[in-house]
Computed example of a mutant assay.
Amino acid sequence: MGIGLGLAKAFLAQGAAVAVCGRSREALDTFSRTYPAALAIQADVTNAADRAAMLDQVAKRFGRLDVLVNNAGRFIERDFTTGSDPAVDLEQEVALNLTAPIQLTSEVLVRWPALAALVFVTSGFALVSPTRAPTYGAVKAGLHGFAEGLRRQLTPKGIHVLELLPTTTDTPGTAHETRKKMTTEEVAAVTLKALAQRQPLALPGPMKFLPTLLRIAPQAASRMVANI
C-alpha cells in the first residue's frame, strides 16, 4: 500500500470517513489496527462480484460515497525485441490498470450520481510512454483519455474529475530505485490541495513542469521521461 495508503491517511487526517480496499488480507489487517475507524475491504477490483460487494459494504457503513479514488495499478516491464512472447498476462495488466477503473467509476456513478469527485491516479508515462514498459504507457494513456473526456461530461453536473500524475514516489514498488523520490505524504498533500481547488490535474514535484516541457521542447522531454 503506497500512494493509496498515503491518500487514505491524508483524508483521515482531515476528518473524512474512509474506506480502502486491497487484495492482501495481511496489509488490510495492519491498516485496520492502526486506523480502526476506517473500513478496510478485501476485494479484487478486476472482479465484478468483488466490486459490487465492496460498494455494498460502503453503502451499509456510510450510506453514501463522496469521493472515489481509482488507485489500483501495476507497472510491468515488457521487451518486444527479445523474440519471446512479451505479452504474457497482458489481459490482467489491462484489466487492473484500465478496465477496472472505468468499470468501477461507472458502477459508482450509477449508485451515487451526486458524487462530489473522482480521482484517477495515472502517471507521467500517460503522456510519454516508457521505453521499458510500453504497455504500461498505453494503459495509463487510456486512463488519462478517459479522465479527460469524463471531465467534460460531468462538469455540468458539478462532479469534479481530478487526475493525479505522481512523480517517482517512495513505495514498496520503487524500493529498488535509487533516484530521488517524493514521499507518499507529499504526493497526498498535493492531491488534496488540487482536489480542494478543483484543479483538473495534480502534478507533484517535477511533474508540474512536464506539460510545459512537452509543449516547448517535446523531443527532449520525451527522451528524458521515456528512458526513466
Rank of each mutant, 00 (worst) to 15 (best):
P113K: 00
L12W: 11
D44R: 09
P86C: 05
T82C: 11
D85K: 13
A194K: 08
L210S: 12
V88C: 12
A10D: 14
D44F: 00
G158S: 01
V161C: 03
K157H: 02
L214V: 02
V20A: 10
F62E: 02
V225E: 07
G2Y: 11
A226F: 06
S222V: 08
R132N: 11
P101A: 05
L65D: 02
A38Y: 10
A188E: 06
G63Y: 05
R23Q: 06
T135D: 11
I102A: 11
R198V: 01
D89F: 03
A226Q: 07
G173K: 10
T155Q: 07
N71L: 05
L150W: 03
A16W: 04
P166Q: 00
K60W: 09
I76M: 10
A221E: 15
M182R: 05
A52G: 14
G73V: 07
F75E: 09
A16T: 04
E107W: 05
L127R: 12
L96D: 06
L203W: 13
Q42S: 01
R25P: 11
V119W: 04
S84C: 10
K208M: 14
A114K: 01
D29M: 08
I41V: 01
T183D: 06
I102S: 09
R23V: 03
G145I: 04
R64G: 01
A188N: 09
E91A: 09
L65C: 03
V45Y: 06
L201S: 07
S32D: 12
A116K: 01
R223L: 02
S222F: 06
L143W: 14
G173A: 04
P156C: 04
I216V: 15
T155L: 01
L109H: 09
A87N: 14
V20M: 12
F75I: 07
N97P: 15
Q219G: 15
C21Y: 04
N97H: 14
G73D: 07
A72W: 12
N71K: 08
F209K: 15
Q153S: 10
R198H: 00
E148H: 05
W112I: 01
R179T: 15
S32R: 15
G149M: 01
D89L: 01
K208L: 07
D66W: 02
T174H: 04
I102G: 08
D56G: 00
R74H: 15
V45W: 02
A114I: 00
H176N: 13
T99R: 11
M224I: 15
C21N: 09
F125P: 07
A217W: 13
T178I: 05
V128G: 10
T131A: 15
L154K: 00
A188F: 05
P166M: 02
L115H: 03
I159W: 05
K157P: 00
A188S: 02
A138K: 13
A40W: 13
R74S: 13
A52M: 12
E93Y: 12
R152T: 02
G15A: 02
T174M: 04
L7Q: 13
F120H: 12
L195M: 00
T122V: 05
V20S: 09
L210P: 13
A27G: 10
V190H: 05
A95G: 13
G142E: 08
L118C: 10
A175N: 07
A8D: 06
W112P: 03
L195K: 04
T82N: 10
F120K: 05
P206Q: 13
